[in-house]
Design a protein around this nucleic acid. Sequence first.
DNA 1: TCCATTATTGTCATATTTGACAAGTCAAGA
DNA 2: TCTTGACTTGTCAAATATGACAATAATGGA
Lengths: 83, 83
Amino acid sequence: MSNMTIMEKSDILKIIGQNVKRIRLEKGLTQVDLVGKIKAQIDTTNISRIEKGRTNATIHTLFRISQALEVPLSEICDLKNSI
Amino acid sequence: MSNMTIMEKSDILKIIGQNVKRIRLEKGLTQVDLVGKIKAQIDTTNISRIEKGRTNATIHTLFRISQALEVPLSEICDLKNSI
DNA sequence: TCCATTATTGTCATATTTGACAAGTCAAGA
DNA sequence: TCTTGACTTGTCAAATATGACAATAATGGA
């Protein structure tokens, strides 16, 4: 069964990125809106790179995003959402 | 209520670390056992630093750990487990 | 106590994330 | 077409995660 699927680094980064983007759009937020809701400084550059799966974000960065999106961190880290 | 709790960076790193350590011990594994089960190279130094909340791990590192521990990534990222 | 296993910590070099800014792309409207 | 907003991408410097190794501490058993 699909438990045998080997997940490459780029695969999981893409899924995490899709999760962030999907949730952000569900909340009706732009990337600028999102960074505006994050307490510490963060940049749309980084949001974009995460959403595109181009960067291997740290857990604290994903946590700050989860706070701004008002969802649990574990929702962003849910790999079962892969399309 | 406790939604007002402000989570500092060090707080969430500690919780993530506690999750890793708790699950690892539940599985009866040592840090050496754990790194032995991880496909790509990883070091017990890093496992220890993550478990102690001394490093802000990337999501891919936590993913590799979750694979070795045979739990979903989202379980490691569950911040509700805070003691 | 002695010993072995396990875990922590320090340091180093390398790689990469991050924030910042600029430039470029893209789509939707006026 | 022109403009505006939203997003992407390149580059840079600074900070830091990572892997590696060594040294130390902590733990438990004989």
